[in-house]
Design a protein around this nucleic acid. Structure first.
Lengths: 149, 149
DNA sequence: CACAAATGACACCTTTAGGTATTATTAACC
DNA sequence: GGTTAATAATACCTAAAGGTGTCATTTGTG
């Protein structure tokens, strides 16, 4: 009952980038601030670009920037890219025809929760994540660095 | 954002068994009624037994039975066996220290949903699943059989 | 134009969840 | 007690998610 690592990473990346949303961030910089394996981070960034969440700038002094104002990017938008299953209507038993056919006994309960989740995801924008503040992310990194001192 | 197959299967198994909760069901019978690969089903059943949700009877005319009245087994009990992560307090960003340390901006929203889920899981017992009725499960199977006619 | 510093594409490796196969053990029933 | 029909244990296989490595392409700048 949680999101996969790819979603987690994407939320972290975009959350961090929304702190200064007009800035171009290189993969290098993101790697220094977020705890995500460098190659995988790179892969993710290209994916997020290809799916229109980021604009990428190639060549020297290139990098990535949010493609839209942070307040126009919802968590839902992000998750649509990173989780490929349809999570709007799913039967807790995993029966194919449950969502639209015969309902299982606890379907209504489960549906209510799904709706609450979806609503939350659609209502929450990256703007809201700014409040995390840079120190939130950076502290993680420093923690690792200071260990080596 | 959903449960793994193992959880799904377990809910299906126990849901089906709660229809006639005093009956002993063999793996064979369960396999005829639920769409779960036989070997994997067997494995699951042993696991559910080892974790106290089912009582197993070995030898001829053996099988499995709910270890407690269905109204005393919650979905939570089941999920505790089948999903090994701690899903009570998790940061949507996957930061280790988020749950009890510095909170991320949307943590409270996420926490509310988690609580709703947990509450639902703890409140719902297998008793409630009886209402699915046998035809709910069996129809799935018949669907496959009739295809071959 | 050449070099350096960035991303893009694509193939490959690793770990884990999901699924199989085999052999051992148990217990009812003749 | 032997046979048969069930579960138990354990090891192995497979597919998909997570993670790496290499080389090509782009672009700012001396």
């Amino acid at each position: 009952m949680n999101f996969n690592k790819t979603t987690e990473y994407s939320l972290r990346i975009l959350g961090f980038m929304s702190i200064e949303e007009d800035k171009i961030y290189s993969a290098e910089v993101l790697n220094e601030n977020l705890e995500i394996p460098f190659r995988y981070l790179r892969k993710q960034l290209t994916k997020l670009s290809n799916n229109g969440l980021l604009t990428s700038y190639r060549g020297k002094s290139g990098g990535y920037m949010l493609s839209k104002p942070s307040k126009e990017i919802t968590l839902w938008d992000i998750i649509e890219v990173t989780e490929d299953i349809d999570h709007t209507h799913q039967c807790i038993f995993g029966f194919e025809d449950c969502a639209f056919g015969q309902r299982c006994a606890i379907h209504h309960k489960w549906e209510k929760i799904q709706e609450a989740i979806n609503e939350m995801l659609k209502d929450t924008t990256l703007e809201e994540l700014k409040r995390i503040g840079p120190q939130r992310f950076i502290s993680q990194h420093n923690l690792m660095l200071t260990k080596n001192v």
